[in-house]
C-alpha cells in the first residue's frame, strides 16, 4: 500500500472508532421514557458527531478503494473490530474477558478472510 493509502486506512479506523464511541455515548443518555430518550438522543451533540464521522468515513473508504482493491481494503479494514473493542474498554470500562477476546479475534480474522479472499 502507498503511504497515501495507509493514511486513508488509518483515517478510516479513526473515524469508524470515533463514530461508534459517539453513538454509544448518545445511546446511554438519561431518559424517563423511550420516547423521551429518542428526543434527547436526536438533539444530542454526540449523535451528530457520530453521523458526521460515518459520512466522512464513507468518503474516506471510497478514497481508499480508489487506491487499493476491495479485497485488500476489507482485509486491512477488519482490524476496526479490535480497535472498537479496545476503545470501548478504555472509554466505557467494558469488560474484556477471555471469551470476548477470543470472539473478537475470530470475527476479525473471519471478516478478513470473507472479504479479502473473494473468488
Amino acid at each position: 500500500m502507498s503511504s497515501l493509502a495507509i493514511f486513508f486506512w488509518l483515517l478510516n479506523i479513526t473515524l469508524d472508532t470515533a463514530g461508534h464511541l459517539a453513538f454509544k455515548s448518545a445511546a446511554i443518555a438519561e431518559h424517563e421514557t423511550e420516547w423521551h430518550r429518542w428526543k434527547v438522543m436526536l438533539s444530542s451533540l454526540p449523535l451528530w458527531i457520530g453521523i458526521v464521522c460515518f459520512c466522512l468515513e464513507f468518503v474516506v473508504w471510497l478514497a481508499l478503494l480508489s487506491l487499493v482493491p476491495l479485497s485488500l481494503g476489507m482485509l486491512v479494514g477488519s482490524i476496526n473490530v479490535v480497535v472498537v473493542m479496545v476503545a470501548g474498554k478504555m472509554l466505557f470500562g467494558e469488560r474484556l474477558d477471555k471469551m470476548r477476546v477470543a470472539g473478537m479475534w475470530l470475527i476479525t480474522i473471519g471478516v478478513a478472510l470473507a472479504g479479502g479472499f473473494a473468488s
Binding site: 472498537v84 470476548r100 470475527i107
Partner: peptide
C-alpha cells in the same frame, strides 16, 4: 446500544 457494550456489539 442502550444496554449492549459497543465493542462486542460492533463485533457481533
Amino acid at each position: 446500544l442502550k444496554h449492549a457494550p459497543v465493542g462486542p456489539a460492533f463485533a457481533a
